[in-house]
Design a protein around this nucleic acid. Structure first.
Lengths: 205, 205
DNA sequence: GCCTCTCGTGACACCGAGTGTCAATGCGAT
DNA sequence: ATCGCATTGACACTCGGTGTCACGAGAGGC
């Protein structure tokens, strides 16, 4: 009777520490600001050592950004799961909605994180760095869907970039409205702007 | 005979130190890689103190990114200088071409810098951070041109983002082709993709 | 010519992020 | 009971970046 499920005790302990760490970090960072809070302060609140913090997160920025990072992978997965016949604008809209929907659902927590990221240059930089990775993944998947060569065609990269642009714009407006704006409506509005380029099929006959 | 022109001797000395510093930095960073070269190494080669380095550049990343940074301001200035009647796609294409033309002209130096930035995560992050600023500036100017309200309309921000997306895509392809690809042709190709959305006048009557 | 006043610089101490290393602890399996 | 493995804390260390101060070299007033 070593383990009831596949998850061992050690694994649950690991998750517990990670949660405790992110909890303490977000609490402090959102309250006092990113650059005035030190890692020692965070680990003091969480009750672990500084070394342990960096075993869970690659950097001080990561503890915030990783909150949004998983959403990015969900986004790429959603694009891959969309039906083959769907137009790029529709498929990308659904993909981008995955993380945005998460934000809308857990608006209490998510809003604070998003505002913190968008208002802190260092966090914004790391966030954009992650997005660059998402863009490459989206572009690869998009090239596969449309039967294009991502190495020679510019469309996949540009289309993925446009979708992420819409994502950013929605996030920004949602953040600056303190969560009162409707993410779904904003997303529709943004995709209405970029759809003409996403769906133009002037290339490849 | 204190100064031939308005530039004082002190001012020329300042520029000299800045040039010496960027020269030494780019030489070392491009040769050995960004993260293995320390600031002490750079200032040793330039013959100044570490403290002086940080009087000229805000960070180790800045010495590389600032090379491209001035181009960004030139880009925004160009957009503001374009004729009022010009379509957004044409105006933005000319704006984006300012920095790209600079790269094409000084391809020997520029190519190494661009490749260094695109291959180094930390530099890429800082670069994207700068671009976010450019995007806001472009969006504001675009809103002024088109008589839109940047606070309520998504178009200005999205259009600026698309233009910078094209910029990035061209830079990326130019870099990965080791400068053999033609930036002008790539720019045309990229703007052909995004133009439908840039010039769609379905909004605001 | 001299005397300031300022500005750029170097030297030094200092803080915080991040890493390598090692000893201790605790769980799982035999 | 014991061995092996993973996690942790403590410590020392590197490096990026900043505050402070004293020094020296130009620019202007007398």
């Amino acid at each position: 009777m070593s383990s009831r499920r596949e998850v061992s005790l050690a694994e649950r302990k690991r998750q517990l520490v990670a949660d405790e760490l992110t909890e303490a970090a977000l609490q402090l960072l959102a309250l006092k600001g990113f650059d005035v809070v030190t890692v020692d302060e965070i680990v003091g609140a969480a009750g672990v050592s500084k070394r342990t913090f960096f075993r869970y997160f690659a950097s001080k920025e990561d503890v915030v950004v990783q909150f949004l990072a998983d959403m990015g992978t969900g986004m790429c997965a959603e694009l891959a799961a969309r039906p083959a016949g769907e137009r790029p604008s529709a498929a990308l809209r659904h993909a981008v909605w995955v993380p945005l929907g998460e934000c809308a659902d857990h608006s209490d927590r998510a809003l604070r994180v998003v505002q913190l990221i968008l208002d802190t240059p260092a966090l914004l930089a790391r966030f954009l760095e992650r997005q660059a990775q998402w863009r490459d993944d989206l572009a690869a998947e998009l090239a596969r869907r449309e039967g294009l060569d991502a190495a020679t065609e510019l469309y996949p990269r540009l289309a993925a970039g446009m979708a992420l642009n819409a994502f950013d714009a929605v996030l920004h407006r949602w953040s600056s409205s303190d969560g009162t704006a409707d993410p779904a409506a904003l997303t529709d509005e943004a995709f209405a702007v970029i759809a003409p380029s996403l769906d133009a099929r002037v290339r490849r006959g």
